[in-house]
């Protein structure tokens, strides 16, 4: 049946260029957005330094990876970075906690308005940015040494006999699997554990949490540790999938914020959903559907152009457009996030 084959070809094409990349990118954004949303929910400010925290964590992991590689450690087909990751997380968590002690705790104790903490986070952003560039330099770094493809386009074609190929990279699978595990673990922690519940209580109603005897310092400490861990994991996954460059990570701040706000800031489920919403909109709006239409539409119906809604150059802008639209229509986000005072 040629009809079915055509549809399958279209589907493969769509999966290859939209579904799988979107899924991987969305997972990376979701992890980043979770960190932003936790900090916002508990410390109550928009942390502009989160992108650079991601860069820092990734840098530490890369340095560890290089060191392990020089020792000849390898867990092929998995990337060495996976063993380096826990150390990256620990160092980044220490760094984040130290930053809080040195900078943010002062304003928290003084009960400064959130915007002052946001301005302080701009200062932190500058410094982290400098540290990362100083240590590892501003250039692109590739550190993924695992197996490249789980499935190559050619193999897929041979396997299925379709005209279109489907390639799946290990990094994409790894990203989705790791993100899934991390998100499940985090949600279990927040929903079930005593400390997780205390964090939710603190985020919900700080005064009442204090009256219940919840120790605010501990909640803040755990929040930074989790935020640093999420930032490092998100950064390493992104870096393995694409590449590591400090400036790109700084720019990731924007889609991550978009994801957190679209989902409803302060709301963990919202952050995950927001991550995928932003990622898929970016990929879908800038994908040229021409080839897909060739398969699914009758000849007379076929469009002349590329059938691309926006040029690929606008990719980054898409997340801001979503962000702005959500802020205007429903400022609390898809899931009801923090009330904007």
């Amino acid at each position: 049946m040629p009809e079915t084959i055509e549809m399958l070809n279209a589907l493969t094409l769509f999966s290859n260029f939209v579904l799988i990349p979107g899924l991987a990118y969305g997972s990376q954004l979701a992890l980043g957005a979770l960190g932003v949303t936790l900090v916002f929910g508990i410390l109550r400010f928009a942390n502009f330094a989160h992108g650079d925290l991601m860069a820092f964590g990734t840098m530490v992991t890369i340095l560890m990876t290089w060191w392990l590689q020089s020792l000849g450690v390898s867990i092929s087909p998995l990337p060495t970075a996976l063993i380096a990751l826990p150390i990256g997380i620990i160092v980044t968590a220490l760094f984040a906690v130290a930053t809080d002690k040195a900078v943010f705790s002062f304003y928290r104790l003084k009960k400064s308005p959130p915007v002052i903490l946001t301005i302080a986070s701009i200062g932190v952003m500058f410094m982290m940015n400098a540290i990362v560039r100083f240590i590892i330099g501003p250039n692109d770094q590739r550190f993924y040494d695992g197996e490249k493809f789980l499935m190559k386009a050619r193999e897929f074609k041979q396997l299925t006999g379709l005209d279109e190929g489907l390639s799946i990279r290990y990094t994409q699978v790894l990203t989705v699997v790791v993100a899934l595990v991390v998100v499940i673990a985090l949600f279990w922690f927040l929903q079930r554990s005593r400390t997780g519940k205390a964090m939710r209580a603190f985020s919900d109603n700080e005064d009442l949490a204090l009256l219940s005897g919840i120790n605010p310092d501990r909640v803040v400490l755990i929040t930074w540790i989790i935020a640093a861990a999420l930032a490092t994991i998100a950064g390493v996954l992104y870096g393995m999938d694409k590449s590591f460059k400090p400036f790109t990570y700084f720019q990731l701040l924007l889609p991550i914020f978009a994801a957190a706000i679209v989902g409803g800031i302060g709301h963990p489920v919202g952050a995950v959903v927001g991550g995928y919403v932003v990622a898929f909109s970016e990929v879908m709006v800038t994908y040229a559907y021409k080839k897909v239409f060739v398969y699914v539409l009758p000849e007379d119906w076929q469009p002349e152009g590329l059938s691309q809604l926006l040029s690929t150059d606008y990719k980054f802008a898409v997340s801001f457009i979503i962000l702005v639209v959500v802020l205007l229509i429903k400022p609390t986000g898809l899931f009801k996030g923090k009330v904007i005072k």
């Binding site: 928009a46 502009f48 959130p114 946001t118 802008a317 801001f320 962000l323 702005v324």
Partner: peptide, 15 residues
Amino acid sequence: RSDYLAIATLGISEI
């Protein structure tokens, strides 16, 4: 709210 305005304007400037 002020920090939302910051994020919104940051995004708009990128656009």
